[in-house]
Amino acid sequence: MQKGPSFEETWKVEFRRGVLQYAVLAIVKRHESGIHGYGIARELEQRTDGLLQIKEGTLYPILHRLRKERLLNVYDEKSDSGPSRKVYVLTGEGDRVYRQLTVLVGSIFEKLEVLGNG
């Protein structure tokens, strides 16, 4: 009888968690004038065909972390639907880190493909 999540499930969770911060940077970079948390959650789901879909509330600790690392900046915007919302924009440092990570991610997948093709 199997106890707890399978190896595959655990691996997926860990992998997804690892790429989530990168994916958030990628989405924010696409929006030069900024994007709010709700928009990021929507794009994460839609642009990755649900592959990187997360419980939307868990996105905010990640955004907070990226802000603390000075990769994202934030400003307040009035919202028609209720309380004001925060709009996230990429900082210069965020842009540098994103470009560096993009190169790294590309290299990793390239090497993995070579490994897979034996």
Binding site: Y38, S79, D80, S81, G82, R85
Partner: peptide, 19 residues
């Protein structure tokens, strides 16, 4: 402050999604 910030974000997210 980080937690207060998170709560404010959550509240606006919920209202936006509901709208």
């Amino acid at each position: 402050f980080a937690a207060e910030d998170l709560i404010a974000d959550l509240r606006s997210h919920i209202y936006e999604a509901l709208t």
